[in-house]
Design a protein around this nucleic acid. Structure first.
Length: 328
RNA sequence: GGAGGAGUGGCAGAGUGGUCGAUUGCACUUGUCUUGAAAACAAGAGUCCGUUUACGCGGACCGUGAGUUCGAAUCUCACCUCCUCCGCCA
């Protein structure tokens, strides 16, 4: 969540971020509520100050009559205080709700656009292999080699279900293990987090309240995370970290659960878009400073590129346009 | 799932209705002493919010949230977390 002070001082930047992300957010509305909230806060604190002073007089008074007078005075004061406190509480709720809808500010380099089609390609690596025959896709290849079973996966799980089997399992473990040593060599601390996490942890990473439809929820009110990013970010929630320890680099491994609500027509075939899978995730904690965070973002991006290069797989790097996701 | 106990500053640990934002010890910072260090002695030091050019002032914070009261770390209720015992389970 962005700091209200930052929002006050950079309202144009915040409003532009909302526009770029195609989010219906009005910074002026937030600032108006913020102003009233602060006025109420000042009033309430003044009243409390008076109340505290009167209470001190009560305890200092030895004469019962004088004492009773003071008590009566506080009683009157408290009625005003109570109504102002209620007003403040209401404004606070309104304010908090608006604060949660403040978009994170995308980097300057993020292109304008409404869908993946507007993404900008910034890099291309490797040569795409050309075959003299019609190549099979991963679905057909893996099915034939009995690395995956989609039909039975659907029988057991339903839509988007799959069984990874045989060499498919061995290949997965091999890649995970290779990734583990690849990133630990770069100073990342491997973590296997709890993937069932509380609501506040999802709020902290911006997956809630907006992303409720994409999450599985337990009967006890926790949610299943779609990425280890959520619990790994929660690892240090409510803690003050020493700047000397920065940057802290974690590599989280977890199952990932995604409802993929509203994406029934997208990437329907194969293993591209599934409800349940396992992966490693890079999470870096660093100073809240533009230069530093951009440098580290470049670094982890480069880590991924290097990893793919080491496997000899051609790829392209795109800058994802703002319209694709709500919270970045 | 059932029964009981506990949660206070960086740590340990007092405090059961009124100068308690909180005794004390350790750790920390500064000073005295010392060639230097240690020890001893003395002093200082919490976080957040609002306000102020600034000094400062005001508010909140004793797991969290409500309540009782003129006044709550202290009383009541709910929740969270940890510990102990019993039960259940892969």
């Amino acid at each position: 969540m962005l700091d209200i002070k930052f929002i006050r001082e950079n309202k144009d930047i915040v409003q532009d971020a909302a526009r770029k992300k195609c989010l219906p957010f009005d910074v002026e509305q937030l600032l108006a509520v913020d102003k009233i909230r602060l006025e109420l806060l000042t009033t309430v604190e003044q009243l409390r100050s008076e109340q505290n002073k009167l209470s001190d007089k009560v305890s200092a008074a030895t004469d019962p009559g004088v004492r009773a007078t003071f008590i009566e005075q506080v009683r009157v004061l408290k009625e005003t205080l109570k109504s102002k406190e209620d007003e403040l509480k209401e404004k606070m709720h309104e304010w908090q709700k608006l604060m949660l809808s403040v978009p994170n500010v995308p980097d300057m380099s993020v292109p304008e656009g409404e869908s993946d089609a507007d993404n900008v390609e910034v890099k291309k690596w490797g040569d795409i292999k050309h075959f003299e025959f019609e190549p099979k896709d991963h679905v057909e290849l893996m099915t034939t080699l009995k690395m995956v079973d989609f039909e039975r996966g659907t029988k057991v799980h339903g839509f988007r279900g799959y069984f990874l089997m045989g060499k498919g399992v061995q290949l997965s473990f091999a890649i995970w293990n290779y990734a583990l040593s690849f990133w630990t060599n770069k100073g990342f601390i491997p973590v296997i987090p709890p993937i069932i996490a509380r609501k506040n942890i999802f709020m902290g990473t911006g997956y809630l309240p907006a992303g409720e439809d994409d999450l599985y929820k337990t009967q006890d009110g926790e949610y299943l995370a779609g990425t280890a990013e959520v619990p790994v970010m929660g690892l240090h929630a409510d803690e003050v970290l020493d700047i000397k320890d920065f940057p802290v680099k974690y590599l989280g491994f977890s199952p990932c659960y995604r409802r993929e609500a509203g994406s029934h027509s997208k990437d329907v075939k194969g293993l591209i878009r599934v409800h349940e899978f396992y992966k490693w995730e890079q999470v870096v904690l660093c100073e809240a400073n533009h230069t530093t965070s951009v440098a580290l973002h470049e670094e982890i991006n480069r880590n991924t590129e290097e990893f793919i290069e080491s496997l000899g797989i051609p790829y392209h790097t795109v800058v994802n346009c703002g319209g694709d996701l709500g919270q970045g």
